[in-house]
Amino acid sequence: MPPLPPPTVIDQPLPYVERLARRLPGQVDLVVVHCTELPDLATAREYGERVLYASGTGNSGHYYVDRDGTVLRYVPEDRIAHHVRGWNERAIGIELVNRGRWPDWLDSRRQAMDEPYPEAQVRALVALLRQLALDLPALRYITGHEDLDREQVPASDDPALRVQRKLDPGPRFPWEQVLAAIPLRRLPDPPPAAP
Rank of each mutant, 00 (worst) to 15 (best):
Q12A: 06
P13H: 10
P13Q: 05
P13T: 05
P15M: 00
Y16W: 12
V17L: 10
V17I: 11
R19L: 11
R19A: 11
R19H: 12
L20A: 09
A21N: 10
R22Q: 13
R23M: 00
L24T: 15
P25K: 09
P25G: 09
G26Y: 10
Q27C: 13
D29E: 13
L30T: 09
V31S: 00
V33F: 07
H34E: 12
H34N: 09
H34Q: 11
E37Q: 14
E37M: 12
L38N: 02
L38H: 00
D40G: 04
D40W: 02
L41G: 06
L41T: 06
A42W: 01
A42M: 11
T43V: 00
R45C: 10
E46F: 11
Y47G: 00
Y47L: 13
Y47D: 14
G48Q: 00
R50D: 02
L52M: 14
A54P: 11
S55D: 13
S60W: 01
G61P: 08
H62W: 03
H62F: 03
Y63G: 10
Y63I: 02
Y63P: 03
Y64N: 00
V65A: 01
D66H: 05
D66K: 02
R67A: 04
R67L: 08
T70C: 07
T70A: 02
R73I: 04
V75I: 14
P76I: 02
E77G: 10
D78G: 12
D78Q: 14
R79I: 10
R79M: 10
I80P: 04
A81H: 01
A81K: 03
H82R: 15
H82Y: 12
H83Y: 01
V84N: 03
G86C: 06
G86I: 03
W87T: 10
N88S: 13
E89A: 15
R90S: 09
R90W: 01
R90N: 12
R90V: 11
R90L: 08
A91D: 04
G93Q: 00
E95R: 00
E95M: 06
L96F: 02
L96R: 04
L96S: 05
V97W: 07
V97F: 03
R99V: 08
G100Q: 03
G100V: 01
G100K: 05
R101D: 05
D104Q: 13
D104E: 11
W105A: 06
L106F: 13
D107K: 08
D107W: 04
S108I: 05
S108P: 10
S108W: 02
R109Q: 12
R110Y: 12
R110P: 09
R110H: 15
A112S: 15
M113W: 02
D114R: 13
